[in-house]
Amino acid sequence: MKNRLKALRAENNWTQAQLAAELDVSRQTINAIEKGKFDPSLPLAFRTARLFALPIEDIFDDKPM
């Protein structure tokens, strides 16, 4: 699944560890999502959308990377 997580994180000047802390997941999970190796669950996708104040479809795109 494509996503804009890395770009959104960069816009906020956050490290992977800081974003992971915000979302209550490990840094490795953020890294795997950014690289498209792991698709987040719906609850995690919603938490991410709330954090960036964006609709889910503006962050995640249901197309393979």
Binding site: N12, W14, T15, A17, Q18, L19, A20, A21, E22, D24, V25, S26, L51, F52, A53
Partner: peptide, 13 residues
């Protein structure tokens, strides 16, 4: 929005 600092989060603890 402000990110939590790099200290261990409650989840990590």
């Amino acid at each position: 929005m402000t990110a939590k600092d790099t200290n261990r989060s409650a989840w990590e603890q």
